[in-house]
């Protein structure tokens, strides 16, 4: 039997693969990720900065929190882009683009804003990203024949979420 050499280093990736087109799409994850980006911007803005007399452990605690907020912000901005890519590339069709002429522009703007929120501490860009993702969610549900409603997210970030309402 073949013996396989083993590497003790960083974890690799193993695929629990599925390429069956299940046809199930939902813009909710993109909205949650956009809300998280907004919340991380808020937390970074609220984070007290250590003064010149701060103890080393206080400066270290500040750096640690800032690192965590930044890492989460970037990860969720990327998550927004992933979710949008799936909707844009897999769900929406050329007929949808005719039905909703603003479709491509919305995705283009949202993708650019998601990149901006990754790169910068920019609460306004995070608000703008959430607004674009909400509009995409509205288009998505309308394309399925549903009415939509907005309601408060009930999260610390504030903001709203878009939900479908069956006719």
């Amino acid at each position: 039997m073949m013996r396989i050499p083993m590497n003790r280093g960083t974890p690799g990736v193993v695929h629990a693969h599925c390429d069956i087109p299940c046809g199930i799409y939902d813009p909710h994850h993109a909205q949650i990720a956009a809300l998280t980006v907004l919340r991380m911007n808020q937390l970074i803005a609220e984070l007290p900065r250590p003064g010149p007399q701060a103890k080393p452990e206080e400066a270290q605690a500040h750096q640690h929190k800032l690192s965590r907020y930044t890492e989460t912000k970037e990860a969720h901005a990327e998550q927004v882009k992933h979710e949008l890519r799936v909707l844009w590339g897999d769900y929406f069709t050329p007929d949808h683009a005719k039905q909703f002429p603003e479709l491509h522009g919305l995705f283009w703007d949202a993708m650019k804003l998601a990149s901006k929120t990754r790169q910068e501490i920019n609460p306004q860009a995070a608000q703008d990203l959430l607004a674009k993702v909400q509009k995409i969610a509205e288009v998505f549900w309308k394309s399925k024949g549903a009415e939509v409603r907005r309601q408060p997210s009930m999260q610390k970030s504030g903001g709203e979420l878009v939900y479908p309402v069956a006719k």
């Binding site: 396989i4 050499p5 083993m6 590497n7 003790r8 280093g9 960083t10 974890p11 690799g12 990736v13 193993v14 695929h15 629990a16 693969h17 599925c18």
Partner: peptide, 22 residues
């Protein structure tokens, strides 16, 4: 070469090994 640890990507081994599990 195989590694000793892997991160799972994709849903096909749920519920035993959900995406992101090791």
């Amino acid at each position: 070469m195989l590694r000793r640890r892997y991160r799972v990507e994709g849903p096909s081994m749920e519920p035993t090994h959900p995406p992101g599990s090791r």
